[in-house]
Design a protein around this nucleic acid. Sequence first.
DNA 1: ACCTGAACACCGTTCAAGT
DNA 2: ACCTGAACACCGTTCAAGT
Lengths: 220, 220
Amino acid sequence: MSRPSKRVGRPRADEPGLSRERILAAALALVDEHGLAALTMRRLAERLGADPMSLYHHLPNKAAIVSGLVRAVFAEMRLPEPGAGEWPEQVRAWAGAYRDLAVAHPNLVLQIVTDAAAASEAAVLIGEPLHAALEAAGLPPAAVSHAAGLVVDFVHGYVLAEAGGETDDDSLIDLLDRYPPDRFPVQRRAHAAARAQPGAAFAAGLDIVIAGVRALAAAE
Amino acid sequence: MSRPSKRVGRPRADEPGLSRERILAAALALVDEHGLAALTMRRLAERLGADPMSLYHHLPNKAAIVSGLVRAVFAEMRLPEPGAGEWPEQVRAWAGAYRDLAVAHPNLVLQIVTDAAAASEAAVLIGEPLHAALEAAGLPPAAVSHAAGLVVDFVHGYVLAEAGGETDDDSLIDLLDRYPPDRFPVQRRAHAAARAQPGAAFAAGLDIVIAGVRALAAAE
DNA sequence: ACCTGAACACCGTTCAAGT
DNA sequence: ACCTGAACACCGTTCAAGT
């Protein structure tokens, strides 16, 4: 009943042969469907109807495949129209677009946030609209850099938690309920109230950042 | 010249026998010294002068070792004195202590930020002083939750970038210099200015958050 | 030029056997 | 009760050989 060997995908008579693009596309599909742990040279090759070793002819090693994936995903990011709306709207649009990118590939979030070489190269490519918005807010240059870092780091932390699951208010309340009711009173109040507005945390965090930037710019 | 087998560490005549604590302590030392990739059941056992399989008598599997490590590191966190100083100082102290924890174990940062089960349990245990400070700022309960999330996510994003390296202003400027000089003008201005204040990004990010919290609380 | 197979040096973990 | 050894089903990658 079991197939004798590889060629499982959809070989077609006119099999196009391997290429960097075809390999990366198959790798992205594999990771999106089954997680990063499922990305294996052997499994990837099987999907492509090829020998595992053939992949090494197009990419030097597995690490190159993973950073190729990160780069490809960053290239997908739809940058917000520059200069559309006031600067707070621009910041919200940029952060939302970056978050969408992570949400579209939850199994790759960790690499997106982590792969320093690929990610900081990408950060430059996508970062200009964010910096421009913060400059338009009236911040001096060094503060633009710091505020942009805050936005990026917040989005990173947020999407990591989001992709990891377990971090919504309900599950935090479940955790709190495992302790005596007099412990952690402030956290109980806070999360009980926040639970009434599910999904508001991202926008609320950005609102605080924007209010802080406004205050800092006004103080200049 | 090569030793015949295991017993490499420091077996001593009165070898104490394995235990969960001894295993986790050895695992933490291994990760701190050589990175998470070096944490291998076989290598860990060798350090302990035991057979790899013996470890399974004290911990169910490797994943349990890693989350045990994360929990142990969180338990090390020195929480700031509650009620010491004004609320902005309390927020800064809390964020600084959390960051210190990550800096002390850079090879474990990814797990600290990622291991949802272990980390969100720990978040509850360490989170009360942060929430109390934000409540003292005058925020309503739901906003306390959102502001705390902002602080935590910012620290997560920041320490990840810090542990990953490559993200200081100098290396960003190097990246920018690989493009024509008319590209990314705002980022060039921003990072050139920020470079003059190395290491200021963490405190500057927190300052923006604190200013935003103050503005939000005043608007209540 | 591009692809392949066998082989190497690793993994985590199961299971039956030792003391 | 606690520890062990052999074995299983995997890994990424090197290298010599095929077409």
